[in-house]
Design a protein around this nucleic acid. Structure first.
Lengths: 338, 338
DNA sequence: AACGACACCGCAAACGTTTGCGGTGTCGTT
DNA sequence: AACGACACCGCAAACGTTTGCGGTGTCGTT
């Protein structure tokens, strides 16, 4: 056991011909006689010859591998994106190499370097929350590695991007709250240096203004994780008498907020209506089922990897950067059904 | 732009020395004079030289890459395992190449082949539900690729394995139901050709017998996904009058069952107590919060990759296969708190 | 008889590294 | 003067492929 894999050289030696002939016979090159081809192909089949991908990669300096850098694997949205990527990549004959930055800038930088060292054909990437500069990304691009961003994309970098229309999405969500009668809406917001956090806040503000409501900065709290909700529970409960609606930047924040409110006998949606953003499986499992804005991770992954493969395989044609914007859809459930 | 990466040859040519000297200077080999070392190292630093991983891999036929084959990425348990793997692997200097079989045997076979072609140093794997034969795995092992299974492992294959003690886990869960007064307990079971499904059923049966209950085969339904619960809703509701407890093979099945029961005005836990298996974030979000058996995905991933790395780096010492059994812990929540 | 056309195959270099081995040059010692 | 010890460096082969180029052999044609 631990048998070494049979190589072209092995076949050549055993069959008494040169490695070049074996190589050509295997790929049906016209220079090789039918008799030799048959012999080589039959023998290769018999010994289960498989080309060594390492050698191929080195030769053509192409690896048929796509690198992925994302903030967290254990996160329903990102793992759906992964699933979408994987499906298309597999069908197109690419492998995927995955790195998670764990929302850490330094890790993101070293991941980018590792992918470059391994000569991946392209990189799919979503920024970590702690990333404020982009030299590691420019480094990839300067070395000819195509980069496509999904979800969290930097405005400063020219590249293909697949994002959802966060502005419109949160505008729709806020409009919905207003439509069912909410007048004082709290926004649990994401970090403002990520366009995603910023856009969602802007959509919220725009919806208020379109409805002639004055926008109250006190009704915006930076709070975008379950833990932050619990940390800010006092603050939120103190406002609970004033407000009648909450729009949270993501579902798990919305759900945690609902749990805090329910525990303090504040009824949802009768007292406060709540809407989230994302539509993972949690939304349907939550109590009450959470209204939210659907953010199709699988579709985002598929679109991103399609753009990347197109870029990779278009070789040296000039490449015009594309930004694909997915339009979000409102999913109304019981948390906003009075 | 699209600048090609600088190589040892480039450095050698520019500095007017041989590639061998550059190579040795970079790794501080004693044969090289301090002056040359300084010169090479300074220059390499300046031009940001990075070794080409492809060439290194070919040379030492080692890739510093770990292959992973798992059924689904979009699944909280598996994505936590991934996160656990990634953390340890990254710290140890390994990259990870991930393939999802999507519960499809053919895909699993071709994934295994792809990992072999890419000469990964080892494989971490959890079987798909449709895998009933193991030649693709034997093929890996026969070619000297260490394989470590996690969670879903075949009994027929000799290899390192990290599993949880499914038998004890479900025995504990069933005992708990009995302890709070349940006498007729329905088991929503997993597929019986996977040891995981089988063991959990056996634990359920053992708990019944230890308490002197007769075991009723009609109280076992093959049903281990949300969709299957909805498909079997009629059957389950028909039994709802007789039974007073449900032990489901996993959390999402348990939660779907609770939703079906609640919709038909059957109260939980007053009328029927429900317990699951897994303890993902869904359990705390469910209504009522779901009692379950904790199955630490992150820890499982970490243990599995540690075993694998140990195997990889022990080289040619004889390797005794280990099976690591993680002990599950009961998490009591409101779904079983009368 | 000589030449061209064609079929078929192998040499060698290349991708970017590493490393055993041998070679040169400079000392100090006898 | 000759030798040994040592420092320092380069050649060449190797990992497993691919591919341009050239080479040989067999025809048929004139």
């Amino acid at each position: 056991m631990a048998a070494h894999q049979v190589t072209i050289k092995d076949i050549a030696k055993i069959l008494g011909i040169s490695a070049s002939t074996v190589s050509r016979a295997l790929k049906d090159h016209p220079d090789i006689s039918p008799k030799t081809k048959k012999m080589v192909q039959a023998f290769a089949e018999k010994v289960q010859y498989r080309p060594n991908a390492l050698a191929l990669n080195l030769r053509r300096s192409k690896t048929n591998t796509i690198g992925i850098i994302l903030p967290e694997i254990v996160h329903h949205f990102f793992s759906s994106v992964l699933a979408g990527i994987d499906k298309i990549a597999y069908a197109a004959g690419y492998n995927v190499m995955i790195c998670q930055s764990s929302e850490d800038y330094d890790r993101e930088v070293s991941d980018a370097q590792a992918l470059l060292d391994n000569r991946v054909d392209g990189v799919l990437m979503s920024l970590s929350k702690t990333t404020h500069q982009y030299d590691h990304i420019r480094n990839l691009i300067d070395h000819g590695v195509p980069v496509v961003f999904f979800d969290r994309a930097p405005e400063e970098i020219e590249a293909d991007k697949v994002i959802i229309d966060d502005f419109t999405g949160s505008k729709i969500a806020t409009h919905h709250l207003i439509a069912i009668g909410c007048k004082k809406i709290l926004h649990l917001a994401g970090p403002q240096h990520l366009s995603i956090g910023q856009r969602r806040k802007e959509g919220y503000i725009a919806a208020l203004e379109e409805n002639g409501f004055s926008y109250n900065p006190e009704y915006i709290i930076k709070c975008d994780t379950r833990d932050e909700v619990f940390a800010n529970a006092g603050k939120i409960l103190k406002m609970a008498n004033e407000i009648d609606g909450i729009f949270a930047v993501n579902d798990s924040t919305a759900i945690a907020a609902m749990q805090v409110l329910l525990k303090n006998d504040i009824r949802i949606p009768e007292h406060i209506s709540v809407i989230g953003f994302g539509d993972g499986p949690n939304a349907t499992i939550a109590y009450p089922p959470l209204s939210t804005v659907e953010q199709k991770g699988i579709e985002m992954g598929q679109e991103a990897v399609k753009l990347l493969i197109k870029h990779i395989e278009s070789e040296n044609e000039i490449h015009a950067n594309e930004t694909k914007i997915l339009t979000p859809v409102l999913r109304i459930r019981e948390s906003t059904t009075k």
